[in-house]
C-alpha cells in the first residue's frame, strides 16, 4: 500500500501531487453511527445489570481458578495430541487398500462423530459397568480405580477428536499431488518414507488451519469434562460460585480465561502456518513484528526528505 514511497522518480523535479477532494461516503457514516449506538446500548445494559463486576478481577487470579485454567490447558493439549496421532493413523487406515482396516476406520469416524462428546465422556467414566476389572495380563486392577476423572476426560475428548482429525488429515494427504508419490518411489523411497518426508510435510499446509480451529474448539469443549469430575475451569468456577453466590460473575471470570487461552493459541497458530508455508509461495508473508518494523523504517525514510528540504 505504502510502496509508492519507494518509487521516487529519477527526474530531479518531483511531479506535483494531486490534491483532489475525496468522494464522501455518507452511507459509511450512517452505518458506523448505528453500530456504535447498538454497542453503547449493549454496554449500558450490561453495566446496569445486577452483576457485581468488582469481584471479577479478584477471582481472575484466584488459586482455584488458576488451577482450573491450568487443567483446561493441559487436558486440551493432551487430548489434542492423542487426537492428532490417532487421527493420522485412522486417516492412513482409511486410505489403505486393505478393506478391513479402511472399514474399521470408517466405522470409528461414523461412531465417534455421530454421538455427543458428553455421552462419550460419561461412558468412559462409567466403563466399570461394562468392564468391572481391567486385566491387561501384566496389569490387573479394578476399573473404578483406573478410570480417574483425568483418564476419562482424556479418552472422551481425545478419541472424539481423533475422528475429526482423521478427516482433516485425510483431506490434507489427498491434497498432495500424486506426482510427489511417484517421484519419491522412483527415487527408491518406501511408502513409509514417502509419507513422512514428502507427503505429510506438504499436507500440513492444508492440515494446520483446521487443526488450529479444532484446538480452539477443544479448549472450550474440554469444559464438558466437568461431568466426569475433572477439575477444569468451568468446574472450578462452579465450585466457587456455589459458595460465594457470584454465579454469573464466575462465568465471566472463566470466559476471560478462555479468551486469553484462545488468543495466545491463535498467535502460535499463525507462526506454525507460516513455517509450513515454506516453498509454497515465492516469499513468506512478513510476521506482524517484521511488518511493524518495516512500516516504521518506511515512515522514517519518508520523513527524511521533508526535513532536508
Amino acid at each position: 500500500m505504502t510502496d509508492t514511497v519507494d518509487k521516487t522518480p529519477a527526474a530531479s523535479v518531483p511531479p506535483e501531487q494531486i490534491k483532489a477532494i475525496p468522494v464522501r461516503h455518507y452511507g459509511r457514516w450512517v452505518a458506523a453511527a448505528v453500530v456504535i449506538a447498538v454497542l453503547v446500548l449493549i454496554g449500558v445494559a450490561f453495566s446496569n445489570a445486577n452483576i457485581n463486576y468488582g469481584v471479577v478481577p479478584d477471582y481472575l487470579t484466584d488459586g482455584t481458578i488458576l488451577s482450573g485454567a491450568w487443567h483446561t490447558l493441559y487436558i486440551s493439549v493432551l487430548a489434542m495430541a492423542l487426537g492428532l496421532v490417532l487421527g493420522v493413523i485412522l486417516a492412513i487406515m482409511r486410505m489403505s487398500s486393505n478393506p478391513v482396516t479402511s472399514t474399521v476406520a470408517w466405522f470409528y469416524v461414523w461412531f465417534f462423530r455421530g454421538t455427543p462428546v458428553l455421552v462419550q465422556l460419561l461412558l468412559w467414566y462409567n466403563i466399570a459397568l461394562v468392564f468391572p476389572i481391567l486385566n491387561l495380563g501384566f496389569y490387573k486392577d479394578e476399573m473404578n480405580q483406573v478410570m480417574t476423572p483425568f483418564l476419562a476426560a482424556l479418552l472422551g475428548l481425545g478419541l472424539n477428536e481423533a475422528a475429526y482429525m482423521s478427516e482433516i488429515v485425510r483431506a490434507g494427504i489427498q491434497s498432495v499431488d500424486e506426482g510427489q508419490t511417484e517421484a519419491s518411489h522412483a527415487l527408491g523411497m518406501t511408502q513409509g518414507k514417502t509419507l513422512r518426508r514428502v507427503i505429510l510435510p506438504q499436507a500440513m499446509r492444508v492440515i494446520v488451519p483446521p487443526t488450529g480451529n479444532e484446538f480452539i474448539n477443544m479448549l472450550k469443549t474440554s469444559s464438558l469434562a466437568y461431568v466426569v469430575q475433572f477439575n477444569e475451569l468451568i468446574k472450578r468456577a462452579t465450585d466457587i460460585s456455589s459458595t460465594s453466590l457470584a454465579v454469573v460473575e464466575m462465568y465471566f471470570v472463566a470466559s476471560i480465561w478462555y479468551l486469553l487461552l484462545t488468543t495466545i493459541f491463535s498467535i502460535v497458530q499463525y507462526y506454525i502456518e507460516r513455517r509450513y508455508a515454506r516453498g509454497s509461495s515465492r516469499s513468506l508473508p512478513p510476521t506482524p513484528l517484521q511488518r511493524l518494523r518495516r512500516n516504521l523504517s518506511q515512515w522514517a525514510s519518508f520523513r527524511r526528505p521533508e526535513v532536508a528540504r
Binding site: 510427489q180 517421484a183 518411489h185 527415487l187 527408491g188 510435510p201 515454506r278 509454497s280
Partner: peptide, 19 residues
C-alpha cells in the same frame, strides 16, 4: 525400492519436492 534406486526418472511435470 532397492531396484528403483538404480533407475533415475525425470517427469514431464518435474515433480520436485516443493517444500
Amino acid at each position: 525400492a532397492a531396484q528403483r534406486r538404480d533407475i533415475g526418472m525425470v517427469f514431464q511435470r518435474f515433480n520436485l519436492f516443493p517444500h
